[in-house]
Simulated assay, not measured.
Amino acid sequence: MSETLGMRLKKARLARGLRQNQVPGIAQSTLASWESGRRWPKWSDVLRLAEIYRVDPTTFTPFYTPDAGQFAGVRHLEDAARTGDWATVWQDGYRFLQRHRQKVPLAVYSRVEQLLAQAMAEQPWLGLVRRQQTLDEELRVAAAMHNLGLGARTMHQWFVRLAQQYAPDHPSYIKVLNNAAIYAERMGDLTTALQWLAVGVNWSKAHHQWDRVPELEAIAFRLHSYTEDLGNLGLQGQMCGELADDGNTFVHEDLCIGYSWRIWRAKDTTAWKRLKTLAIKTWLDDSPMPPWMALWDAAWAWRQRRVAKPLSDWVAWWLADGETLWRAHWDWYLRDAMLLAAQSQHPGFTEWRHWWSHYLQQHQEDGWLTWV
């Protein structure tokens, strides 16, 4: 029987001495389905496994040779780009990624994504899908782009175009501003993200959407906390009032993470204990509290007592189950864990950095590499 991709993946894993539940960044059930042949991994996933297993990625390329349809599809897009037919580039490129996303080689996928980004850059005024496109329709396209896994930089360019093309008085315009901030943050460009948030706060006030103001301001507070210290912020006074008064779980989460970073930078263990008490006291929702407290507890265990296992266990749990439990925030909790590990010189970061760097580069979020 000829060797399958799954068999070769399993052989590489065993040669590295790893069990399925020991492979970082891949859920055990997902890896098992790849090795058994029940599912087919994307080339980007295979590249990540190659890095973890420390094997040459070309070991797996025979299973990912582009077929004739893929070659023809890319040539068609490049021909359209040469003639300046950007609407065709967008329409057919989008369909290409939908059709081939499971088995397309990384080089082919990246080339199509580059052409999509070029289409947006060259003719930002064009509807790209249809000339008569409404903002709500474009937002639905953006959701589909996100589900296809397009990178943060590409997604940010899309929302920049929407912000320029549509009138600010549209009721959905705040979604454009909010998403532009989200993808700027994912890129690691906090300055741009904060600029989008400031515009969003002003827009919300001008259009009397007062419930959005504290949410956007809390995100801005969290982003500022990557560079600002605790300063004169009173843990007993101002913070307690901020956490208790709003009752919004998103605001609560962003403020708590913001204060966690400031306290971490100040190396103030007393303030950390006080923050945990206040956070639990002011959590008004019946759902479980987001896992920020467990993450920082694990980081403090290493910093204070040089106990490495809690943070290693948290990262392993997050990689295995976090995306299922907290999908919307999975990537930035992972990012915070990596930053905490790097800044405290956690021994696990030597291995984590390798595949995390690949993840950031693959998703156009590599601006965060400058933070480590």
Rank of each mutant, 00 (worst) to 15 (best):
G84N: 02
R327M: 02
S312C: 08
L139W: 00
D297V: 05
E185K: 13
A27S: 09
T324D: 09
L223E: 09
R153S: 08
D297S: 12
R54E: 12
N232F: 01
P57T: 14
L197R: 06
L126A: 04
G25H: 08
R303G: 05
R305L: 13
R39I: 01
R353K: 15
E228L: 07
G258K: 04
T277Y: 03
E35Q: 10
D211A: 14
F221D: 14
T61R: 08
L190A: 03
N21K: 12
G322D: 00
D286Y: 02
D336R: 07
W90M: 15
G200V: 04
H346I: 07
W314K: 03
R54C: 07
T227R: 11
W261V: 12
A152E: 05
W90P: 11
D211R: 14
Y166E: 06
N179A: 12
W86L: 09
G234E: 11
L97W: 01
V160S: 01
S110Y: 06
I26W: 02
D56T: 14
K281M: 05
W314C: 06
A294P: 07
Q304H: 01
L162C: 04
S29Y: 00
E323W: 02
K205V: 15
N202Q: 11
E113Y: 04
L162Y: 06
V213G: 01
W302C: 11
Q304S: 13
V315T: 11
P66Y: 03
D79E: 14
T65V: 15
P66V: 12
A68M: 11
V112N: 01
R153I: 12
A301T: 02
R222S: 03
G188C: 01
Q157G: 09
R16L: 06
D285E: 12
L106Y: 13
E185Y: 11
